[in-house]
Computed example of a mutant assay.
Amino acid sequence: MDLEPSIRRHAAALRALLVFTVLLGLVYPVALYAVGRLPGLQDRADGSLVRADGRTAGSSLLAQPFTGAAGEPLRRYFQSRPSNAGDGYDPLASGASNLGPEDVVDVPGPDGRTSLLTRVCERSAAVGELEGVDGSRPYCTDGGVGAVLAVFGERAPDGTVPHPARVVSVNERPGTVDAPFVARYRGVPVELARPGEDYSAGLIVPVRGDAPADPVVPPDAVTGSGSGLDPHISPAYAALQLDRVAAARGVAPDRVRALVEDHTDGRDLGFMGAPRVNALELNLALDRRFPVRG
């Protein structure tokens, strides 16, 4: 048996392995590292870290909370948008809630979850209370949950229930509220949801309510980004927080407004994306210009 061709093939394969190991396992990584050390690129290669007072305060590419020990928003800082990354703002667990606009019914119990609608309602009410503005939104109750009814009865060909036999406010339960957000629906008294009872057979009807069509609290204040780590907030959300931050720092709102404008980036290339404000960079600028005394 002639082994020479087989030996030549194996030798060629071994040479290719050694060449590509050197190229891709040594030369290529070293070249990328060297490029990352070039002036103007080093900061980005290192994660765009931001330092303040000799310590790393965070990354300009990643959102982070500006809260106290108990998780309460610090009044002297602009707050980031909500995060669903891990337990919140976890750079190792980037991600969204993956809940869509039709997710309107809460699932109670230890293994349950809060619907997207109720999360939005809760956040909007909390932001409204923090900023001293109207936090109401369409399809939200005054108590900050999704205003959703389960309507039982014979269904018409178009899927509606013109003559309900029973109506339940599925996101409100005894002990959380004294009465449903609406007393009657098409002449039928509305009940509070009972723990453990299944309402999936009912027609789910969100109720818009009388909240303004254009809420005071902007969308990015109540929804997380796709990554959960977007470091930017909208100029509208920054404007909403401006008076609170100025009061906490004891400075005139106009001075804080000017700082916000200085840290507002326009659309990329003039037409891509939307104007935005980097919350971390803005808060660090606040600490430098208007430090909190005491």
Rank of each mutant, 00 (worst) to 15 (best):
A248M: 12
A221N: 03
A211D: 03
V251E: 07
R267F: 11
P65M: 15
G100S: 05
A93H: 12
V277C: 05
R75P: 14
L192Y: 08
V170N: 06
R113W: 09
P212Y: 07
V256I: 07
A85K: 03
R288K: 14
N171V: 15
A16T: 11
D46R: 05
T160I: 01
F20N: 08
R288Q: 15
V245T: 04
P39D: 15
F271P: 05
G40E: 12
A221M: 06
L284E: 07
R44H: 14
S60P: 01
V133W: 00
L280T: 00
Y28T: 05
V148S: 04
A179R: 02
G228K: 00
S200K: 04
E154Q: 14
F152H: 03
V148D: 01
D243A: 15
P110V: 00
R166N: 06
G144L: 08
P195Y: 04
R288P: 10
V222T: 14
V177M: 05
G95R: 02
A274S: 09
V260C: 11
L269Y: 09
G71I: 15
Y77C: 12
G86T: 06
P157M: 04
R155Y: 08
Y185P: 12
L116S: 03
G58Y: 03
G143N: 14
G250A: 10
G128M: 06
A221R: 05
F290C: 12
M272P: 03
Y33R: 12
L240S: 03
H10R: 08
D134G: 00
R249Y: 09
P235Y: 01
R249I: 00
P275Q: 02
R137F: 08
S234E: 06
D134A: 01
L62A: 05
N171H: 08
P291N: 13
T264M: 02
Q79H: 07
L116R: 03
G146L: 14
S136F: 04
Y185R: 12
Y199P: 03
N171R: 11
L26D: 14
D134N: 00
V19E: 11
C121H: 04
R123E: 13
R75A: 15
L24Q: 04
T67Y: 00
I7T: 04
G144K: 04
I204R: 00
R44P: 13
Q241H: 09
F66Y: 06
V105M: 05
A221W: 01
P5S: 11
P218C: 00
G187P: 05
V277S: 02
G187C: 11
E131I: 02
S60A: 04
D142C: 11
V105P: 01
V120H: 05
F181L: 10
D103P: 00
R208I: 12
V216Y: 01
E172D: 14
V120I: 12
I7H: 08
A12P: 02
G88Y: 07
A279V: 11
R257W: 07
Q241V: 15
R44S: 15
P180K: 09
D210P: 09
A179M: 04
Q64C: 07
